[in-house]
Design a protein around this nucleic acid. Structure first.
Lengths: 219, 219
DNA sequence: GTCTATACTCCGATAGAC
DNA sequence: GTCTATCGGAGTATAGAC
């Protein structure tokens, strides 16, 4: 997805320091949203924790909404890279799909505040740009391709090569995320009442789209 | 659940007028949360729309948090009554369970703001009281009983008489609610990309808990 | 790029007259 | 039970000195 040269590093010390500050601002903002809710983000409090006066932040972000936008964009980008990497490291077809879905919901639970900003719309006055949305589309395309692979490899029946099957997957991970985040936000994956259900929920795919012949991956 | 005499009606005109005002305040608050987000609720704006000055509201509610509490309590109570009525009017066992789950998620989509207040915790400084929570427990107990019925009637295997199966149901409706509310909040039930998946998701129950013999309700 | 100072808006809540 | 007046605080954002 990205060539070896990610950022050509034409950055002088000044620019690099500036980017570090921006990242630091976003990290503080993320912590703050975790503690006070997504709507609890305020530039004054960020400035307080960063150790500067509020007006200084306007040298880095032109408005509060710009901070939300940057958080949204960074979240989508990081999540997408993570999910694509996990899927690429997993056997194609149904295993890759399941691994990608699990990686998504686990990342969401580890970054709950940003995840809420990304999937719900808790700040009505904020609407993400199309550019910030792009990684999400890329991620869904990858899962859509995994469904097609699953059909081709005989993991699932032909009906699974469909947007409907993708939406089933999205609905299932949304359910695990919502229940776990609301009821037991601090438990690690695999413990508690909801995240252990994930493997069982994945059985819905072969139920809804049964393959004609039995799956190939029988050792 | 309630005897014919619900409220003995010992209410004089004054008390009745007062209760009407309280309901009106809650209705306005609900509309406001729908428009501006759950956090967008403000007593000043409620007063503006009610046509009074902000201090007047303090004759009905001692604080903003008390309004949240009343909204939460009313939501739980109304939802619980609705779900229990639907389940009682449906054949017992798996059909009643599915009907109750569907009624829950449909009610949530028709009252999205209150539903978010009830299941997520978008206002960190607000914590509902145990009393306001009680109807929710009653509702889960009813669904738990429906699962037991389903096992007894042969709709599901013995493993379905479990909290785990209940959590599967909760996770599924949470997923439909989250995806539909976020992506297509204004579409009626049964249209769009997510709510039509509900019947398919319900197939997960017999998949996870297959009955020994085939279900009885073959006419 | 940081600061001080400030303008502006909004809110929750209380006191007290009527 | 309504109002006016007010306190006290929060926030976003801008202007301008250094």
């Amino acid at each position: 997805m990205s060539l070896p040269v990610e950022q050509p590093q034409p950055l002088d010390r000044r620019s690099r320091r500036r980017m570090e500050t921006i990242e630091e601002i976003l990290d503080i903002a993320e912590t703050l949203m975790t503690e006070e809710g997504v709507n609890g983000l305020s530039l004054s409090e960020v400035a307080r924790r960063l150790g500067v006066q509020p007006p200084s932040l306007y040298k880095y972000f032109p408005s509060l909404m710009a901070v939300y936008e940057a958080l949204f964009e960074r979240g989508q980008r990081v999540l997408c890279e993570h999910v694509l990497a996990v899927m690429a490291a997993t056997p194609p077809g149904l295993p890759a799909l399941v691994a990608g879905l699990e990686a998504s919901v686990r990342w969401g639970l580890e970054h709950q505040a940003v995840a809420q900003l990304m999937v719900q719309r808790p700040v009505p006055s904020f609407t993400p740009s199309e550019r910030a949305m792009a990684p999400a589309l890329e991620q869904w395309e990858a899962m859509r391709a995994a469904l097609a692979d699953a059909v081709r490899l005989g993991d699932l029946g032909p009906g699974a090569d469909s947007d409907e099957a993708l939406h089933v997957g999205i609905t299932l991970i949304a359910g695990v995320f919502a229940t776990a985040a609301s009821n037991e936000p601090h438990l690690p994956w695999g413990t508690g009442r909801f995240t252990p259900l994930f493997p069982k929920l994945m059985e819905l795919f072969p139920t809804l789209y049964p393959p004609a012949r039995k799956p190939r991956r029988r050792h």
